[in-house]
């Protein structure tokens, strides 16, 4: 899933990129409104995160132009401006959400998921696969276990999809890293284990006695269907 991030503050840009990439999103960056429009035309992202106050072309202008062509693409404003009029203008231009700075990673991801889910067509939303009692909805970045909703990142979806595709087989660490992080990405050795640990906490009934994602010592991980 591709996200366009436009912010004139380089540190914010870099921080957002790191946060989103760590969750498995593909990120396209723009440092002003004009660049954002170019990047949008070139990459056609699945979601746009726009700062409002940017040189030359504001986030409002970008939103207006994008909405004229793509009425359904989710657009989120991430802004330090929080006056009523700013929020009203943002929503009038068709923004899906207005996230006031400061915000943390979890809040950002939660709001992104809501926007993505809202923009997902009903047919795409229904595409799902089951891993024991857990039903995963990839397009909505979520899963359900006995009626309880579980928020998932694109990377966690990718891990589950890969394990589900190779149900009963051991998927080795390199394959998982290549498929879910990309061939050119060299994460630290513990990155995969940390992700699996986080994922187990969400989907397993008892994370200390995992039934869905098994660890195969010195080999990798395996999904064992019930």
């Amino acid at each position: 899933m591709k996200i366009l991030v436009a912010d004139d503050d380089p540190i914010t840009r870099e921080s957002l990129e790191a946060c989103l990439k760590s969750e498995g999103f593909e990120v396209v960056l723009a440092q002003n409104g004009a660049e954002a429009l170019q990047a949008w035309k070139k990459h056609r992202p699945d979601l746009l995160c726009l700062d409002i106050m940017m040189p030359h072309t504001s986030g409002y202008d970008v939103c207006r132009e994008v909405r004229a062509v793509q009425p359904a693409v989710p657009i989120l404003f991430l802004s330090a401006k929080s006056e009523e009029i700013d929020v009203v203008v943002g929503f009038q231009l068709g923004a899906d959400d207005f996230i006031r700075k400061p915000f943390g990673k979890h809040e950002l991801l939660a709001r992104l998921r809501v926007a993505i889910r809202r923009a997902t067509p009903a047919t795409a939303a229904r595409r799902s696969f089951a891993m024991r009692e857990v039903v995963v909805y990839p397009a909505e970045l979520r899963a359900e276990r006995e009626g309880m909703e579980i928020e998932l990142s694109p990377r966690e979806i990718a891990i589950l999809e890969l394990l589900h595709r190779h149900a009963g087989e051991v998927v080795d660490r390199n394959t998982l890293l290549d498929q879910c992080w990309g061939l050119h990405y060299f994460p630290e050795s513990r990155t995969l284990d940390q992700h699996i640990s986080k994922l187990r906490k969400r989907i397993e009934r008892d994370p200390l006695d995992p039934q869905i994602i098994e660890t195969v010592r010195a080999a990798g991980y395996r999904y064992r269907p019930g």
């Binding site: 503050d9 540190i11 914010t12 921080s15 957002l16 790191a18 946060c19 760590s22 991430l78 330090a80 401006k81 929080s82 006031r100 700075k101 400061p102 915000f103 943390g104 990673k105 979890h106 950002l108 630290e188 513990r190 940390q194 640990s197």
Partner: peptide, 24 residues
């Protein structure tokens, strides 16, 4: 206060990232 919002966002985002990198 408004000006503090952007650096605070960056601090919070990077803190969470750093904590994730350090693991549990």
């Amino acid at each position: 206060s408004h000006e503090l919002r952007s650096p605070l966002t960056n601090i919070l985002l990077n803190l969470e990232l750093s904590q994730e990198m350090l693991g549990e």
